[in-house]
Structures are given as C-alpha cells and as structure tokens.
C-alpha cells in the first residue's frame, strides 16, 4: 500500500479523478435537476405521443442501422484484415472519414449523395427509400457516422486471430465459409460484440447529421433540442434523463448478454 503512495501515483490519481468528475458531474446533475412534475407531464400531457414516437423512432432506426452495418461491415472488415490489395490504405482512410467529418457536414453529404435530386437518390426513391425527412434518412445518417466504429473494431478482432488456425482448418477439409463460421467468427466474436455495442451507442447519440437529413420523424435527440428551444431547460433535462437511463440499462444488458456476463 505504502509503495502505491509515491508522488507519481498520487499525481495520476488526482488527474484521473478530475477527468472522472468531469464525466460524472453532468450525468449526476441530470438526475438531480430533473423535475418529477415535468417528467410526469411529458408522458401524460399533450407531448406524450410525440415523446413515445421519438423514442420508438430512435431505437428502431439505431437498431436497424447497426444490423445493416453488421451485414455489410463484417465482410468488409474481414477483407481488410485478411487481404492485401492495391488501394487498401486509401479504402481504410475513406472508411475513417466519418470520424473526422463534422456531423452537420456528414448530413449535407448524405443529402447531396442520396437526396431526391441526386443521381442515386432518384432510383432509391423509386423503391421507396426516401432519405430526406424520412425514417430511412435517419438510418442512413446513423449508419454513416457509426460505420467506422464497427468496421475498425471488427477488423482488429479479425486481425487478432492467427491465420494459421484458418489455414489448418482449410487443410482439414473445411470450405472458406465453414472456416469463417466455425473458427474465425467465434474467435472474433468478443471484439465484434464490443464494436457493435459502440456502433449502436454512436448511432443512438447522433443528432447533427439527423438534423440536416431528417428533422422528421423526430428522434429523441432532435426532440431534446426542440424542447430546449421551445419549452426551456426543464423539459430538455427530463427527456435527457430518460434517454440516459434507457441507454445505460440497454447497453448494460446487452454487454452482459453478449459479452458473457463480464
């Protein structure tokens, strides 16, 4: 114990505490400053259906965007982890662009690329995939900003597996698909689950790109902004508190179920 109390350790402890408090204080304040009457009013007054619809839209869109990312992102992550090809570095840089792009800019880019007057937007609209002010626009915005999170996590998970395991499995008579299903995927699962949870969290918290692409149907984050502007901080706090509680509960449950209780 005495050995731990050296000046370096104490300095680290103090600096770390400041950062932890910086994260905790706003979160705790949300709960402390939530007015129970406002909270009740949100779910019983004229705002009730709007709030419930916003929650439904947010969770449905974030879940769908994460599932779509899994379906398209895992093959891409595996390809990047296992194969070398010309332009690979460029491709990896492209995938990481949403990390560095301001989210309102991401929204403008999505509208430009998939909006009704764009080259790709018109054929998409013909099959019912309207982006502007629609549920699919929210899904697109969420996918765009959370794609690098899932792809990079899955890529690292695949890279961590010794390729000789896959090679031996092939020599034992397993097809590439069987090797992926029985060796690669089970061994990379923990990393993929972690990436999926983070990608979902990223999608759930998105607001900037959604504001530009699809203000309607309103997500809960858009509603928080709107209530802040229209009704003041009290309503925004109440909504934010619920979103925080639901998010923490969901992510904890998901982590426990998918991560084997750890």
């Amino acid at each position: 114990m005495a050995r731990n109390l050296n000046p370096f350790f104490v300095a680290n402890l103090v600096i770390s505490t400041i950062l932890v408090l910086f994260i905790l204080i706003p979160l705790v304040s949300l709960f402390l400053y939530t007015n129970p009457d406002t909270l009740r009013e949100l779910f019983t007054g004229y705002t009730a259906s709007e709030v419930l619809n916003a929650f439904e839209t947010t969770f449905k869109a974030s879940l769908l965007s994460t599932l779509l990312l899994l379906a398209f992102g895992l093959p891409l992550a595996y390809t990047l982890a296992r194969h070398s090809f010309p332009g690979k570095k460029v491709l990896e840089s492209i995938i990481d662009i949403p990390f560095v792009l301001p989210h309102t800019v991401a929204g403008v880019a999505i509208l430009t690329g998939f909006g009704s007057r764009s080259i790709f937007g018109e054929p998409l609209e013909r099959i019912g995939l309207v982006v502007q002010d629609s549920f699919w626009g929210i899904v697109a915005a969420m996918m765009f900003v959370s794609a690098p999170v899932l792809i990079d996590s899955a890529k690292v998970a695949f890279q961590s597996i010794d390729p000789e395991l896959e090679e031996v499995a092939r020599c034992l008579g397993a097809s590439p698909v069987r090797v992926f299903a029985t060796i690669t995927l089970p061994l990379a699962l923990r990393g993929i689950v972690a990436g999926t949870i983070l990608a979902w969290a990223r999608a759930l918290s998105e607001v900037g790109a959604i504001l530009v692409v699809a203000y309607y149907p309103k997500t809960i984050n858009v509603l928080v902004l709107e209530y802040l502007n229209v009704y003041g901080l009290s309503y925004a706090i109440a909504l934010s508190t619920i979103l925080t509680l639901v998010s923490i509960a969901l992510f904890t449950a998901l982590r426990m179920v998918l991560g084997g209780g750890s």
Partner: peptide, 29 residues
C-alpha cells in the same frame, strides 16, 4: 484449394483451435 487436396498440415505453432476442446479439435476434419 487446400480442402480438396487431402493434405494435412501441422504448423510449428500446432494451431489448435483455442475455443474447442481436444475432442472437437480432433473431430473438426
């Protein structure tokens, strides 16, 4: 392709599948 050659390969690392018991490792092929 390797799965159609009928060659068995044992690398220096042995490459046992870490998520499978010995029984399942042997039964894999």
């Amino acid at each position: 392709p390797p799965e159609q050659r009928g060659f068995a390969y044992v690398p220096q690392s042995y490459a046992l599948f870490p998520h499978m018991k010995v029984w399942d490792n042997i039964a894999y092929g």
